[in-house]
Design a protein around this nucleic acid. Structure first.
Lengths: 229, 229
DNA sequence: AATCTTATTATGAATATACATAATAATTCA
DNA sequence: TGAATTATTATGTATATTCATAATAAGATT
């Protein structure tokens, strides 16, 4: 392991063990460099990476101090649904339900950051795990940003995977919520009355322009999100 | 902005714009250094940070190439419930419902990584927003790891905030799911029959020892999680 | 004592340099 | 021709050095 990572680990251990409590000032770089038999530059690298990860706060001359945390960050890895299903050892199936150019409803129009009377591509499709409905996808694609979508049938490739190929590095915002299934969800997800769904909503944009908005509904008894690290 | 961040941004723009597609090889450091009128070390810093963030993959001699993404990472910031409520402009209230030493049920015992017949502190409490139940907290604390909890009444401070003060840098794993409210949730969260809840489960550990396990239930119509950045 | 100025100090950042290491390419030899 | 060896190359890491910058402390001035 590189020296700066080793130093980083030692420092982090001292923070986690409570030797350096939130608010405490850490020794200056030069002092730590001497202690570890290294140089200031290397200690600087170690402390910078701690600062990048939010464990300490650094200000010139004022020194480095342990951050007082009142919140915690959790990381979620969102896989494309095919992988999610296959990695759980189940068989994946895809079904296109509908596809067409439409004027989106007000709420979606707003999400798409639309100017006036935009026409968008509206796709509804289903993803199955071992033959059972797993995810209902209700998607709007902004044809101003991704015109090629207009000539794609989406009968064999899901819009999710298609978009990932065309627009690989867009940004996204996700919302997670619970709800009682509406009639469309009940029908396609094969749910009884009053059954809950877990809903993910995602808006995706590139260069400030909204690419797509999607609502992904899952039967609650077969879906959960787990954070990593 | 520091040089290496400027270079990083330019490189990232080229990736996002599609100039460098997934799988493509980036020019070597020396070449980019010349292009930007900088040095190899500085370009190295920029490319390292792109690799840290998962945009590129680097191997000695083999070069740096754009990663083919099939998954995306989303970051969630989990605030303590008091802050969450107050930052939405609402009044926060806290109510302790029960507190006692108990032998945890099998499922919790497993979560706590318990050895045999462990006794844990079991706390049930409620968090209100503007007088309406917002979160039902059902918590088990491992007294082997945090013995001080045994002498804290938790009548005025919630276990969440108390633990954050005592064990500031623990690790955690979260699970998010939707469910129909059970009888306890219905009673305390003031829900009608068949109403859904959004449940967060969190296990927290320090040095491989489980500190606490908690189940946080919310009325679905008043709770959602939104990712950042 | 209050305010302004100056010096000091810790971190921020860039560069030149040196050597390590892993992957690939080129070469040699059986 | 195929396998083994060697050279080349791109990245990985550490260090010394230099200068910048911001926050604080110390001192001078009114």
């Amino acid at each position: 392991m590189p020296t700066y990572k080793e130093i980083r680990n030692v420092l982090l251990d001292r923070i986690k063990s409570g030797e350096w409590r939130p608010g405490n000032l850490l020794p200056p770089e030069a002092e730590l460099a001497e202690e570890f038999g290294s140089t200031r530059v290397t200690v600087n690298r170690a402390m910078q990476s701690l600062a990048d990860d939010g464990f300490v706060e650094r200000r010139r001359k004022a020194g480095t101090r342990v951050v007082q945390r009142t919140e915690r960050d959790a990381l979620i890895r969102i896989r494309i649904v095919r992988d999610e299903i296959e990695q759980s050892g189940r068989r994946y199936n895809y079904l296109l339900i509908s596809r067409g150019r439409e004027r989106p409803p007000q709420r979606i129009q707003a999400e798409l950051g639309a100017s006036g009377d935009l026409e968008a591509l509206h796709i509804v499709c289903l993803h199955f795990a071992d033959g059972r409905p797993f995810q209902l996808e209700n998607r709007w694609i902004n044809l101003d940003v991704v015109p090629q979508a207009g000539s794609e049938s989406f009968e064999t490739i899901s819009p999710n995977e298609w978009l990932l190929q065309k627009v690989p590095y867009s940004n996204a915002e996700h919302t997670f919520r619970a709800a009682t299934a509406d009639s469309e969800e009940k029908e396609h997800l094969d749910l009884g009355p009053n059954e809950p769904v877990f809903v993910i909503e995602r808006t995706t944009w590139l260069d400030g322009r909204t690419v797509t908005h999607v609502m992904l509904s899952h039967p609650a008894d077969d879906f959960r999100i787990v954070t990593r690290d």
